[in-house]
Design a protein around this nucleic acid. Structure first.
Length: 344
DNA sequence: ATCATTTGACCTGC
DNA sequence: GCAGGTCAAATGAT
């Protein structure tokens, strides 16, 4: 566990070292920035891996572990890295878009596209379809419908839980509301239709279809349609956020999502213990089984709904002009990690 | 009271 | 006409 902590601290240090760079990002070498980000990501990935090993060795947590592994089946490490990369890039990107960090660079799109699309090996394959995103039709219109392959479509495969409620689709960090289910010709299992929980509040057009594979009932095929436009920060304005174009829209909107379960556990966030804020782990159509809560797995605690978004807020909003946000956020994260560690 | 899920009916593209 | 996608009333959970 010492090694784990030192890895975490190393990552924090690297991130802190990066902070002064943020002040004058415009003048900075993007490649340099990218490599530093890569380094930070590597360190945290190592820490995460290390944590897994330690958990395996811990008899105290054996039972809890099994539950974790069953409910959150093995995620390909490459996906973990992908996720971290994406979040890091998004974090910077969203700030660039918001003009909080001035830059004339092309960091965002190149990096974002790379981070967002290059994935595939292992348990999670991703295919990207067309990307002609269209505005949502006016609500007064009669049931506007698109042509079948008109909207942006992304299909991924994700493992289903092998124990407990295997009906639950995998958590992807968003909160979804089921609005339909349909038997599909030639498929053994019905297809579930979900839309973003915040559809009403933010006119978020995001949808997904979840279908269990015929040949592998422990695998879901999840098809996403349209991007989230809901900026799900707790401090988000009440006015619907402006639409962002193309890739950047998809990237920034995921910023608001919750961390995936494997990360959430490492942060000590959604897990067993403190208080009653189990809400964070409940988000998404698939998160429920973890907390052992009832069948209504998509319920969530509104106050603890968007931890990552909050993190971003702390990082860039809190203290407004004082430049120590980086320190603040990592101090807070250190505390979380320590707290989580003590539980073990 | 509010919000999520279920499910049969309805609508639309092919 | 069929299959897939969505609506919306009924129902349940909190």
């Amino acid at each position: 566990m010492d090694e784990f902590i030192s890895l975490i601290l190393q990552g924090i240090k690297l991130a802190k070292d990066l902070e002064p760079t943020l002040q004058n990002l415009a003048n900075h070498q993007n490649q340099d920035m990218a490599s530093k980000l890569d380094e930070i990501i590597r360190v945290f990935i190592s820490a995460r891996t290390r944590l897994n090993v330690d958990q395996h060795l811990s008899q105290m947590l054996q039972q809890q572990q099994q539950q974790q592994q069953q409910q959150q089946p093995q995620i390909d490490p490459s996906f973990q890295e992908y996720w971290l990369r994406t979040k890091m890039v998004e974090l910077f990107q969203s700030q660039l878009m918001a003009g909080r960090i001035s830059s004339s660079s092309g960091l965002e799109n190149k990096q974002a596209a790379g981070g967002g699309i290059q994935m595939g090996s292992g348990g999670l394959a991703m295919e990207l379809g067309g990307r002609d995103v269209q505005a949502v039709a006016s609500s007064s219109m009669q049931r506007p419908r698109r042509r079948k392959d008109d909207a942006e479509k992304r299909t991924i495969r994700a493992p289903a839980p092998r124990m407990g409620n295997t009906e639950i689709p995998p958590d992807d960090g968003y909160t979804w509301r089921k609005y339909g289910q349909k038997e599909i010709l030639g498929s053994r299992f019905p297809r579930g239709y979900y839309r973003c929980t915040h559809q009403k509040l933010y006119q978020c057009p995001a949808k997904k279809q979840v279908q269990r594979l015929d040949d592998d009932p422990y695998m879901f095929e999840v098809t996403y349609r349209s991007d989230h436009t809901c900026h799900m920060s707790a401090t988000a304005p009440s006015v619907p956020p402006p639409q962002l174009p193309d890739i950047t829209q998809g990237m920034t909107q995921t910023m608001a999502a919750q961390p995936p379960p494997w990360l959430e556990f490492s942060l000590g966030g959604g897990g067993s213990g403190s208080g009653g804020s189990s809400g964070s782990s409940m988000a998404g159509a698939g998160a429920g089984a973890g907390a052992g809560a009832g069948p209504s797995n998509a319920r969530y605690n509104k106050e603890a709904e968007f931890p990552v978004a909050d993190m971003a807020d702390v990082m860039f909003n809190s203290g407004s002009s004082s430049g120590n946000s980086m320190e603040l956020i990592f101090t807070s994260m250190e505390e979380k990690w320590e707290a989580g560690d003590k539980k073990k």
